[in-house]
Amino acid sequence: MKSLLRFLIRYHSTILFLVLEIIAFILIARFNSFHNAKIYSAKNRVLGNITSMYRDFSQYLRLIDENKALRKENIRLYNLLPANYYNPVSHYDTVILGEKKYEFIGAVVINNSTNKQYNYITINKGRKHGIEPEMGVICNDGIVGVVKETTENFSTIVSLLNRDFFPNAMIKRNGFFGYIEWLGRRYNKVVLKEIPLHAEILIGDTITTSGYSGIFPEGILIGVVEKFEAEQGIFYKVYVNLSTNFKRLSNVVVVNNRMREEQLKVEQSTEHD
């Protein structure tokens, strides 16, 4: 007993060091693998004001560019209105529009990072506004990520710049598809994998979402091909320059696929057979 006590006194700093490190690792395991919504809302209460003030200010500085982008987007949408199409049937009422599959909810980014290995984005809309986990998130320039956790007023998004996120993607010109992986280095570069060697790729080809997983609509821009190389003799490894600038993300759109559940259900029942 006496020697145990002497041991404890002698090595008290090493023991304290080990104990503290173990506590720290427990904290990492507890909080970082899945983002605890509680921590988020607590932090938002404390830091919310400072962050949103900072946000407001930096948004103000970008107002001109943001306006330009919105104007362009407005004109594009204007062109898509059914009323603006030539209609062979004389009355507008008789145009048959299919059932609406995708719904869009606008939101503003209030927190974002690009310098970690697992980046997340926080937006100012939540459950109250109809946002649920696993919805896709896009912006005017291309894809952003997928919703991870939601609270009443906020949601966190797994950024495309996250090493655990692998969205489906395809080459727009010929439809060959693979998946996107971020290598954890540059915030504006990703890699498209599993494109077979017989696929024809050109530098400058457009890469878009494939729409297979039902998270994103088909044809949302991801980026353009920078270069490509054969990997292990089976597949191409295609380096893609992202079209979305994650450093100055501000307005995003959350995509709600109203038929996703149905798609998942039929896919699941097929797999179980």
């Binding site: 700093s13 090493t14 060091f17 503290l20 490190e21 506590i23 720290a24 690792f25 427990i26 904290l27 990492i28 395991a29 507890r30 909080f31 970082n32 983002h35 921590i39 932090k43 830091l47 990072s113 970690k116 997340y120």
Partner: peptide, 19 residues
Amino acid sequence: DIFSETIGMHMVATIAMAF
């Protein structure tokens, strides 16, 4: 960590440094 949403990571590093 609390402010940069990386609970535990900076803690591990600063404890090691202090030691």
